[in-house]
Design a protein around this nucleic acid. Sequence first.
DNA 1: TCTTATAATGTTATATTATAACATATTAAT
DNA 2: ATTAATATGTTATAATATAACATTATAAGA
Lengths: 162, 162
Amino acid sequence: MLTNYSLVFQESNRQKSIVAAIKHAESLCMAENQNFTALRRLVFEIIWENSVPLGAYEVKGILSRKTNKSVDPPTVYRAIEFLMGLGLVTKISSLNAFIGCPFPSSTRSNFFMICNECKRVAEVSSSEIDNEIKSIAGKLSFASERQQIEIFGTCISCKTDK
Amino acid sequence: MLTNYSLVFQESNRQKSIVAAIKHAESLCMAENQNFTALRRLVFEIIWENSVPLGAYEVKGILSRKTNKSVDPPTVYRAIEFLMGLGLVTKISSLNAFIGCPFPSSTRSNFFMICNECKRVAEVSSSEIDNEIKSIAGKLSFASERQQIEIFGTCISCKTDK
DNA sequence: TCTTATAATGTTATATTATAACATATTAAT
DNA sequence: ATTAATATGTTATAATATAACATTATAAGA
Ligand SMILES: [Zn+2]
Ligand SMILES: [Zn+2]
Ligand SMILES: [Zn+2]
Ligand SMILES: [Zn+2]
């Protein structure tokens, strides 16, 4: 089980992981012959700096403030699309919002635990669930390609806060 | 494993199941002291008649044609919200579209297999996956409440069609 | 180095999805 | 009948996302 749960829900200092994430993004782009431009890097950082998924227009606002100029939607959506293509960012469909992927090179399922209270999202990668899905798909002759699993509930810190 | 897979991906005559679904919706509303009004019934039928999830504005269009009068968005969204509240209809978040739930009284997970080719959606309810999710959530002290699992791929009929 | 091709970004306009707020009508309860 | 509750009608607008085309930056070939 691969998880960034403690990072998201318990640790305070995320800075280290962000630096590592940027390094990883850079080398991934290098390897894929893709350009990690200033704009893409900025959007990556904005999304990564938040443990809460951001909507595209929130990213737009932050980007605008950071660069001191107005930003139009396509600018943001294109950068996000690029980052999603590399698996560096994932969309949480039920929130229309985007979150950094902590282990983009994993081929396993995206599996998000979303706290209804604090809105933070942790990603878990479970081979057991993966295998179970494959098994069911196999029985039904469904060729699965991609899956998105969103679990809503209450995280440990919000539970104990009450 | 509860599934409407063969219904969705293989059978041709869905009429029988729709009639049963309406019966079920009626008695559920009765039990919950909710009003299964003409409008709600129409929206329910429209969504149920399709094995493909419909967007709210598609429902709006069909509803408008069926009733020969113009329909405004809130009308549709309110009916859908009502049906979702009873578990009769589910939103496929990644498609912004709605589909009838074949076993609304099941307390288990929604688990959708979405064919990228024909867009049809089958629902599977697996206690194995449910338990695995509960187990992981337990380990992480995450109190899960609701989950949405969307598997994208190719269904058997689209696979053999090629 | 100049030219050309490719990739990335800027810009304007618009499409799509969803909700807020308030008015009216229908139904149920007193 | 009157009141309260529920449901629907209506208008306006918010929020999310993309299409289409112009411009700029970067890389590759001559
Ligand atoms: Zn991921
Ligand atoms: Zn929380
Ligand atoms: Zn269901
Ligand atoms: Zn298919």
